[in-house]
């Protein structure tokens, strides 16, 4: 086993940490931004006004049929054309991730809200609560609980998808590791590290989702 040089990890740790920081930033922004936008889209989709529900469902359908790589490219090339000046690859990647994930979070939020029994809203309205109060006090708390496992699951997917930002020449964790791997000729060590790190992060998030699901009253 003397052929392995695990020291390469320590020597490139700063570079790898930068990659991980970018991955974390992408996950954070995509999740928070995606959830907020997705929440708005979900309310539009559930609306009885076709003027709101049709555009929202069209948006979701289009986004969900496109590969993320394509969306990343699009925003990288289209945003500068649209606003007439170049934007950094980070800004365009963040925007692409938020808009892409919003479509998926929309469906998660929608499922969460639809999961709440219809009668709950009637019960709230019957006591004199207004629609927004019913949504905030009765529907959303129940929807959020139902959504949590799906949201955690989606975070795992987003984290795995962050590796795609290499197409706009950003260095996320996986890209950083592969740069080191080819530069130092240490592919085995670096990709083993990547596998272990992905495994630990994704597995613990998935476990958290399971744990949460089990703890819910049926």
């Amino acid at each position: 086993m003397s052929d392995f040089d695990w020291g390469v990890i320590a020597r490139s740790s700063g570079f790898l940490a930068d990659g991980m920081a970018l991955s974390a930033l992408l996950v954070l922004v995509a999740t928070v931004g995606g959830l907020i936008l997705g929440f708005g889209l979900a309310l539009m989709r559930l609306s009885s006004h076709r003027l709101l529900s049709v555009p929202a469902s069209a948006y979701v359908t289009v986004m969900r049929t496109l590969p993320l790589v394509l969306v990343l490219f699009w925003f990288y090339f289209l945003v500068p054309l649209a606003i007439g000046r170049p934007v950094g690859s980070l800004a365009s990647a963040l925007l692409a991730f938020v808009l892409f994930e919003a479509a998926f979070y929309c469906e998660i939020v929608r499922a969460g809200i639809s999961n709440v029994r219809n009668g709950q809203s009637d019960a709230g309205l019957a006591t004199g609560l207004r629609r927004t109060q019913v949504l905030r006090l009765i529907i959303l708390p129940q929807a959020l609980r139902a959504m949590m496992p799906l949201v955690l699951n989606q975070i795992v997917i987003v984290f795995q998808d962050t590796s795609l930002v290499y197409v706009v020449s950003l260095h996320d964790f996986l890209t950083a590791a592969s740069v080191v791997a080819s530069r130092d000729g240490r592919a085995t060590e670096m990709y083993t590290l990547v596998a272990v790190v992905y495994l630990v992060i994704c597995l613990s998030t998935t476990k958290a989702a399971e744990f949460y699901r089990k703890g819910l009253p049926s």
Partner: peptide, 20 residues
Amino acid sequence: LPALRSRIGMVFQSFELYPH
């Protein structure tokens, strides 16, 4: 309507208590 509803109590077949 909310003010009017607040003056009329309603009880449903399926209870519809808030489970949370």
